[in-house]
Simulated assay, not measured.
Amino acid sequence: MADLSPIDLQKALKGADYPASRDDLVSVARSNGADDKVVDKLEHAGKQRFDGPNDVQKAVFDNG
């Protein structure tokens, strides 16, 4: 999963409204056609709620 980039994550979360729950972000990513590695990273991001895109990126990339 080292090939996941911040740009991939941004594309997957396009149109997300914040604050958002982890489940909401997973749904947005799936509806945006995100691949499994992005969805998996979101599902294991370690937080239940995110205040904005920077919060998501920090949780995803610092978590693993």
Rank of each mutant, 00 (worst) to 15 (best):
A2K: 06
A2V: 11
D3A: 13
D3H: 13
D3Q: 10
D3F: 12
L4Y: 08
S5C: 05
S5P: 05
S5W: 02
S5V: 03
S5E: 06
S5G: 12
P6V: 03
P6R: 09
P6F: 04
P6A: 06
I7R: 15
D8C: 01
L9W: 06
Q10K: 15
Q10C: 04
Q10I: 10
Q10R: 15
Q10L: 12
Q10A: 14
A12G: 05
K14A: 15
G15P: 11
A16V: 06
A16D: 04
D17L: 10
D17H: 07
D17Q: 12
D17F: 02
D17W: 00
Y18S: 03
Y18L: 10
P19A: 01
A20V: 06
A20P: 09
A20S: 03
A20D: 03
A20T: 03
A20L: 07
S21F: 00
S21Y: 04
R22W: 00
R22E: 03
R22V: 00
D23W: 00
D23H: 00
D23L: 02
D24E: 15
D24R: 11
D24Q: 12
D24F: 02
D24Y: 01
L25N: 01
L25C: 05
V26R: 02
V26N: 00
S27W: 00
S27N: 08
S27Y: 00
V28M: 01
V28L: 01
A29Q: 05
A29R: 05
R30F: 00
R30G: 01
S31M: 09
S31C: 03
N32I: 03
N32T: 02
N32S: 14
G33Q: 01
G33V: 02
G33I: 02
A34D: 06
D35W: 00
D35S: 01
D36E: 13
K37V: 14
K37Q: 15
K37S: 14
K37G: 07
V38C: 11
V38L: 06
V38W: 02
V39S: 04
V39E: 05
V39W: 06
D40L: 06
D40H: 12
D40G: 10
L42H: 04
E43W: 04
E43A: 11
E43N: 13
H44T: 15
H44R: 14
H44V: 09
A45E: 08
G46R: 12
G46V: 08
G46F: 12
K47W: 06
K47I: 08
Q48K: 13
Q48P: 07
Q48A: 14
Q48H: 09
R49F: 12
F50H: 07
F50I: 08
D51M: 10
D51A: 13
D51N: 13
V56E: 09
V56S: 07
Q57W: 00
K58E: 15
K58D: 14
V60E: 07
V60S: 08
V60L: 12
V60C: 05
F61T: 08
F61W: 09
D62L: 08
N63F: 02
G64P: 13
G64C: 12
G64K: 11
